[in-house]
Amino acid sequence: MTDQRKTDYDALADRLTGDSPLEAAAVQLGSDAAASGRAFLLREYGGDAAIRQAIRRGRPRVGDSTPGESATVRGRIADVEYRAFMELVTELGKPQSELIREAVHLLLEHHNKLAS
């Protein structure tokens, strides 16, 4: 039997993020919002350990299967290089993160910094 009450989440997401006006029945700000978000996740996952595990699973380490977050590097680049980089992303059809890892690997190879 078809569940008449089944929610169409694609349509709901479209509606709520579209032009329709929204009202709040209740609002939490700042630390109260964080406490509420945490309470929600604790209710869903059952404990802090399960939440941490879900975060680790959702952000797997790059290059090996050891649990925990991978190291992150950040840096700003010139607009002209950014445009060229984004062209490359489109041309190669690879994610930015994969190309950045490739670039760092090539740089380290160039400077003989990779363990043999």
């Binding site: 709901l12 709520l16 929204l22 009202e23 709040a24 029945a25 209740a26 609002v27 939490q28 700000l29 700042g30 109260d32 919002a33 964080a34 509420s36 978000g37 945490r38 929600f40 996740l41 939440i51």
Partner: peptide, 13 residues
Amino acid sequence: ILNATFEAELEGE
């Protein structure tokens, strides 16, 4: 969600 700075229950949605 864990570090939310704003949370709202949307009315009637």
